[in-house]
C-alpha cells in the first residue's frame, strides 16, 4: 500500500499551513472589513488632503457640536464593550447575559443615531447642508455613511438577539464574534472620524 505509506507525509505538510486553522467566517469578515477600510480610508485620505491643501476649514469645523460628538464617542465605545461582553456570554454559555448585552449594544447604537439625528437637525437649522462647502460635504457624507454602517450593525445585532431569544444562537455562536468584528470596525471608523471632523 504505497498510497497509505505516503499519505501521512503529505498530510503533515498541510498541517504546517497556518491558513487552514482560521475559520472560514473569520477570513470572510476580515476580507470584508479590509475592503471597507479601503473605502473609508479613501474618504479620510481625500478629506485630509483637501484640508491640507485649502485653508479656512476651521471656521466651518467650529460649527459642529463637539460636545455631542464626544458623548457619542463614549456611547459607541461603551457599546463595543457590551458587544465584547455578549461574545463572552456566548463563550461561557450565559443565556441571560447574551440577551442583555446584545440588547444593550443595540440600545447604545440607537442612542448614537438619535444623538446624531439631533446634531444633523441643529446643523440644518443653522443652514449648513452638504452644499455649504467642501467641509460640510465631507462631514455629511462620512458621518452619513458611518451612520448607515451602524444601522446595518444594529440590524445584524437585532437578528442575533432574535436568535438568542429563540435559543438558536448556540448552534452558531461564532456569529456573535463575527457580528462583533463588524461592530468594532464601525466603532473604529468613528474613532477616526471624531477627531478629524470635530476636533481639528
Amino acid at each position: 500500500m504505497g498510497a497509505s505509506a505516503h499519505a501521512p507525509t503529505a498530510v503533515a505538510a498541510v498541517n504546517d499551513d497556518a491558513f487552514k486553522d482560521i475559520a472560514r467566517g473569520r477570513i470572510a469578515v476580515w476580507w470584508f472589513l479590509a475592503s471597507e477600510i479601503m473605502v473609508f480610508g479613501g474618504f479620510i485620505t481625500c478629506y485630509v488632503l483637501f484640508r491640507y491643501a485649502h485653508g479656512g476649514w476651521e471656521d466651518a469645523a467650529r460649527h459642529v457640536n463637539w460636545k455631542l460628538g464626544a458623548v457619542n464617542t463614549v456611547v459607541l465605545l461603551t457599546s463595543s464593550l457590551t458587544m465584547i461582553l455578549a461574545h463572552h456570554a456566548v463563550k461561557v454559555g450565559d443565556k441571560q447575559g447574551v440577551k442583555t448585552f446584545l440588547g444593550l449594544t443595540i440600545a447604545l447604537g440607537l442612542t448614537f443615531l438619535v444623538i446624531k439625528g439631533f446634531e444633523y437637525h441643529a446643523e440644518f437649522a443653522e443652514g449648513f447642508t452638504p452644499l455649504s462647502g467642501l467641509f460640510w460635504s465631507f462631514y455629511f457624507l462620512m458621518t452619513g455613511l458611518h451612520g448607515l454602517h451602524l444601522l446595518v450593525g444594529i440590524i445584524i445585532n437585532l437578528s442575533l438577539l432574535v436568535m438568542a431569544l429563540r435559543g438558536t444562537i448556540w448552534a452558531c455562536g461564532d456569529r456573535v464574534e463575527l457580528g462583533g468584528l463588524y461592530w468594532h470596525f464601525v466603532d473604529v471608523v468613528w474613532i477616526f472620524l471624531f477627531p478629524l471632523l470635530y476636533l481639528t
Binding site: W31, A34, S35, E36, I37, M38, V39, F40, G41, G42, F43, T45, C46, P130, S137, L141, L145
Partner: peptide
C-alpha cells in the same frame, strides 16, 4: 482588487453626489 477598489468606491459616491 480588494485593496485597490475601496478608494474608487468612495470616489464614485463623491462623484455621484
Amino acid at each position: 482588487f480588494m485593496l485597490s477598489v475601496g478608494p474608487l468606491i468612495a470616489g464614485a459616491f463623491m462623484l455621484l453626489l
